[in-house]
Nucleic acid binder design. Structure first.
Lengths: 223, 223
DNA sequence: GTCTGTTTGAAACATACGTTTGAGTCCAGC
DNA sequence: GCTGGACTCAAACGTATGTTTCAAACAGAC
């Protein structure tokens, strides 16, 4: 075997199982038996289950963030004085995600689902790890959004970015199930790229909507 | 004690702990010790942990769906020939949520977080239970959305509804964390009502955005 | 007061988990 | 050929979980 083929097999199995079932619902025994390796191999190679979780994220997030930074460099270089538009920034992001070299056809949806889980499941160690490692790329994207929406207040922008993250993470994390439902209901096939193509205008429109007055809750008058 | 005060104390404790930590991360022992009751009481009164989870949802979801159906009745009665507008439908939903009688000040955010968790954590039994019990109200809301967006194709509408669900479920499921971050960053306090008030225009704008051509993936030309 | 069904209590049960151990295997370097 | 470090393996460890048990306490009806 190549030097520590075991490590990769553990990572592959863990990635898929985590994406399917979440972190706490996936045991090391499931992972090792799917990977066809010994139970002790996880603690030998990674140290702990938490460290394995972080390694799974690092394996796809590190190259993704490099791709992303390059895309941002290109974007900023191409329009030196005016800030990049919202569409351009969103496309830079989605393209980097879609164009990532995938291990298999499920790659992109596993990727998205893991990101969604990272936000959703309250794994303190993961949140800290991601903040430490990848805050730079995230910060650059935020700055791009800020430049593209100067009309928004900081608070409005903050919440709308959370809404965007939610729509993206949620949709992509269950994209397989949602595609199946659509296939059954309307007989329509869909690719992840098409979902992204539908998502981007939705997000852009939401982010640029007229700001509401958030302190007043009032029912719109009927007709 | 009143007849099975124990049941309510278990439900209260479970509700709060589930919202804080998720389902699998909350043990029956945490729940019973927080509730000040014996461990066996859960299995005696509810039968199993899964049944307790469902009971927690039923306690707030059943009255909520009744409120919701009434709001939908009113809405449809008030505009007999033209279908209710998108804003009206969205407001009927959020108002029903916000106006629910709360057990305490954390009530609404617990409510929202639980709904988010129900979507996010892959609890098969919960999903089945919710579909069985509450599909009617959900179906009515879908029909309202359909009437309010006749310009959208079925496929477009399908995906945009998923985007809306995602933004809502995701934001609400981490609303406490997101509020804390905003408090630290910009020193702004936020209520769940305000989040909802910001979310509605975002969703409405996204749902009504011009439809994109989803089969073509093309980078927007620079500047 | 006694009886009956309901509810509580402390303890145990079986199982699953993450982790550790220590013997065994493999292979490059000398 | 031997040695030493890297790796694998089966087994065990300690702990935590959901669930069950059965005796004790309680309540209301007669």
């Amino acid at each position: 075997m190549a030097q520590s083929d075991t490590v990769d097999r553990i990572l592959d199995a863990a990635e898929e199982l985590f994406a399917e079932r979440g972190f706490s619902e996936t045991s090391l025994r499931m992972i090792t038996s799917k990977a066809g390796v010994n139970l002790a191999a996880v603690n030998y190679h990674f140290g702990s289950k938490n460290a394995l979780i972080q390694a799974v994220f690092a394996r796809f997030l590190t190259p993704f963030c490099q791709t992303l930074e390059t895309a941002f460099d290109d974007l900023e270089a191409s329009c030196r004085d005016t800030p990049p538009s919202l569409d351009q920034s969103l496309w830079a992001l989605t393209e980097s995600a879609v164009r990532m070299p995938q291990r298999n056809e499920k790659g992109i949806s596993i990727f998205m689902r893991l990101l969604g889980l990272a936000y959703t499941q309250s794994q303190g160690h993961l949140r800290k790890f991601l903040e430490q490692e990848y805050s730079e790329a995230f910060g650059r994207f935020m700055a791009l959004l800020k430049g593209a929406t100067p009309q928004l207040s900081a608070v409005d922008r903050y919440w709308r970015i959370q809404f965007m993250l939610g729509a993206t993470a949620f949709t992509m994390s269950s994209s397989d199930a949602l595609r199946d439902i659509l296939q059954n209901k309307l007989g329509v096939e869909t690719t992840v790229q098409e979902i992204a193509a539908r998502l981007v205008p939705f997000l852009a429109a939401g982010l640029q909507a007229d700001a509401a007055v958030p302190t007043l809750i009032s029912k719109p008058s009927v007709a």
